[in-house]
Simulated assay, not measured.
Amino acid sequence: MKSQEEVTKKRIRKPLRILLKTLGAIAVAIVLFLAIVFIVNVFATNSEQEKIESYGQHVSVDGKNMNVLIQGEGEETIVLLPGFGTATPALDFKLLIDQLSPFYKVVAVEPFGYGLSDETEKERTTENIVSEVHEALQQLNIKRYMFMGHSIAGIYGIDYVNKYPNEVTAFVGIDSSVPTQPGMDVNFPLKKLEFLKKSGLLRLMMKLGADPYTGLAFDEKTVEQMKMISFKNMNNDTTLNEMDHISSNFKGAQGLTFPKDLPLLLFVQADNQGVAGWIPLHEGQIKDSVHGKVITMDGSHYLHHTKFKEIAENVRTFMKVAK
């Protein structure tokens, strides 16, 4: 007869073997899942690359191609700069550009790492980004212009207008960032974000997430192009490097103010739950301005997706008075 000890050991071994087999099966399933996601991402990326349609024109900056879309033939020029992570700026601004271009020459700049522009290994400091945008405008022989920027373009823009005061005729912010806004000293998980991109998990998450263009006025073809370019650009090495510099770029801008005599128009989200004192922060930026105005609007951070008509109309009215 078997001893009680042997019987007990046998009883323990059986569930242990089942547990180990189960864990092994789960591990194999996870590896297989990740492999499928990776392969699907590779094939989808290659397929989409052939379907992405070019727009705008390439300008040589620092030995690389920067994409710029120019629309309209007005006597005055507006230069548009996107917020951080807006994967396809010229198309993202399309609704606003269509409203502005009958009256202005509109120049939508896609910085390196965005839209159809090349990536770059150059550090994404404010100094480098501002210098590159300026070089692109110089190459296009654009000498006088309003500077209009969304989100983090408020940080690059405040530096830009101080460096090139004889070129910029006004600054217009679309829910633009403020150097002293709280919460910008965060360290981002860059390695995890890089893994999500290269593994294909980011594509899967974007596919399973809510469609950011639902209910907006973009046509179907534009939405399709924006999605494909987003899959290409999101979390690329250039924008991750920019993310790594966000804290230092905000800190570096804290000593800057907009020139008092520069017309300053700020469109601000009326109910920003994420940043304390969002409206007062912008009101502080215009308090010493000779021609300064804050206009609050109901909507998301991407005000130009829904308030493009109102933005265009207010820009025209404001500039007539500020001249």
Rank of each mutant, 00 (worst) to 15 (best):
E110G: 03
P111C: 03
Y104W: 11
T126P: 02
E119M: 13
I97T: 14
V79P: 13
P89N: 02
E75P: 00
V107N: 06
L137H: 09
T88A: 13
T120N: 03
V106R: 07
K94N: 09
E76N: 14
L137E: 00
E110D: 10
P82V: 05
E135P: 02
V68F: 11
V68Y: 07
L100I: 09
L140D: 12
L81W: 01
Q139I: 04
E73N: 15
A136L: 04
G74K: 11
N67T: 03
S101A: 15
G83V: 07
P102S: 09
L116H: 06
L96F: 07
E110K: 06
V68W: 03
G85C: 05
T88F: 08
Q99Y: 02
D118H: 05
E76Y: 02
Q138N: 15
L137F: 06
I70G: 11
K105Y: 09
F84Y: 14
L69V: 03
D98A: 10
A136Q: 07
T120Y: 12
V106S: 04
I78G: 00
D98I: 03
T77R: 08
G72R: 02
E119I: 12
N128C: 06
N141G: 04
Q71W: 06
H134I: 14
P102W: 09
G115N: 05
I70A: 07
Q139Y: 00
T77M: 07
P111H: 10
P111R: 11
E75M: 02
Y104C: 01
F112I: 01
N141A: 15
T125I: 13
G83E: 13
